[in-house]
Design a protein around this nucleic acid. Sequence first.
DNA 1: GGCAGACCACAATA
DNA 2: ATATTGTGGTCTGC
Length: 226
Amino acid sequence: MKDNFINQLSLDLFHQLEDNTKNTAEVLTLPDGKPMPNAEVIIYRSFFNELESNTLFQELLNNIKWRQDRMKLYGKEHDLPRLIAWYGDEGRSYTFSGIPMNPDTWTQTLLSIKQKTEETVEVEFNSVLLNLYRSGKDGISWHSDDEKELGKNPVIASVSFGEARRFQMKHKLDKSLEKLEVNLTNGSLLIMKGSTQHHWQHQIPKTAKAVEPRINLTFRVIQTTK
DNA sequence: GGCAGACCACAATA
DNA sequence: ATATTGTGGTCTGC
Ligand SMILES: [Mn+2]
């Protein structure tokens, strides 16, 4: 029963690649239309269709092992303003922000999303970091995906489900460059590669508006410890 | 009038 | 040595 659902899901996902004409790559540019310097960012605005996206959102919301991590800052402990989960190849461990981590092993749903993503991005990923932004009170502030275990010029593939959230990027050094922004909508795929992480930061700003949850999957190739 | 954004203050870690 | 993290406050401007 569950396997049938998954098989049907995988089939649907496979066919969508050929059938969905909206599944096209758009290169992100500066607000004035000029190319982003020192960055390669591509978005597929309808990588998954609406129906698939809604199904996958519910499935992930219910079945992923979401964790509430905490961090200490200025002498106070805070819950991170988001829930996270790590999944990856079995038997591998790695360090994330200096903390040794054992990823949970891939679920069928994650594997079908991973496979479809890999076919388009043409990279084989070995792990995924999932973020759950429960409301407008959740977000993540300016940072780069520059963990050492991601290596130089990492390819990061970010799939979004649920409520759309603003995704902003700014150049680390050249403050004359305008901030740029893209809406990460239900079913979209954003790819960052090349030197993007060396020269740019990104964030998901919090918002005072009432927003429904968003789930984000960032597929990565990490150097495993073992 | 609600929201976004730009400030600021607040340590400890790499 | 420098950049980072999240919260919460104030202030401005749309
Ligand atoms: Mn990131």
